[in-house]
Design a protein around this nucleic acid. Structure first.
Length: 225
DNA sequence: AAGCAACACAACCGCGACCCA
DNA sequence: CTGGGTCGCGGTTGTGTTGCT
């Protein structure tokens, strides 16, 4: 179906935020709280799209943001969580207080990916690069290589279950079919207040993640999750 | 010192999920 | 049940900064 633009593009600013805009947004949210992103810009006197306001607040202005370099420990947590969850940055961010999904995503793409590759680990599969290469050969004639390189019988499923491509299947049916025996909440203790743990589709999404991603051997886990 | 390339990160875009009338 | 509006997510792009030649 057709989709209306999220805002009147002709009357909105784009690009970098000014200090004045930041200040307006901060003081408005302090006074009225988060939410109503669509109407917020107008109420706050900002010539910005609601989405832009939300992003600016979440990624940059929120008072509880940590900012600054990632610690070694955070690195390891991110790697660990990525091996479990794939590119579900918001879920990963939920486990790292003070960090945002955007920040983690950027950090992954610019630092950790390279770090893993240089240490011989495939950043998508979290397996040694050699075996990943073999896996790629195996799937060269079909769809893009699945994250999991396990048995062929489940490879199609794994492709559907992984989250690294835009072709990712999101349908509840497939999520259900992907729901595995492992409860992610038990494994990594996702916060129960997260919306992801309260909606049915989301909890199945967790299950699918844990199932879709072949867990690396415990010996490869830097942390004792 | 200048030009270029690589890097880092903020911001945008499009889409699916969710909510509610 | 359906359709429209809104929110949130992940991928991608744009731009400023840093390092190298």
């Amino acid at each position: 179906m057709g989709r209306s633009p999220c805002c009147e593009k002709a009357h909105t600013n784009k690009g970098a935020w000014t200090k004045d805009e930041d200040q307006r947004l901060i003081s408005y949210i302090r006074a009225h709280g988060e939410g109503n992103w669509r109407s917020l810009p107008k109420s706050a006197g900002l010539l910005r799209c609601g989405k832009s306001c939300r992003l600016r607040w979440i990624n940059y202005l929120r008072p509880d943001l940590k900012r600054g370099n990632f610690s070694e420990e955070e690195d390891e947590i991110i790697i660990k969580l990525h091996s479990l969850l794939g590119n579900r940055w918001s879920l990963i961010a939920g486990r790292l207080p003070g960090r945002t999904d955007n920040e983690i995503k950027n950090y992954w793409n610019t630092h950790i990916k390279r770090k893993l590759i240089s240490s011989g680990v495939d950043p998508q599969t979290h397996r040694p690069l050699n075996s990943a290469a073999i896996t790629q050969l195996d799937f060269r004639n079909s769809a893009p290589p699945p994250l999991s390189s396990k048995d062929n019988s489940s490879s199609a499923h794994d492709t559907n279950c992984n989250s690294t491509t835009t072709e990712e299947s999101q349908s509840p049916r497939e999520e259900e079919s992907c729901a595995g025996a492992v409860n992610l909440e038990l494994s990594i203790g996702l916060p129960s207040q997260s919306k992801y743990m309260t909606s049915a589709s989301s909890s199945s999404a967790e299950s699918k993640s844990i199932h879709g991603f072949l867990l690396p051997a415990p010996s490869m886990w830097p942390l004792g999750f």
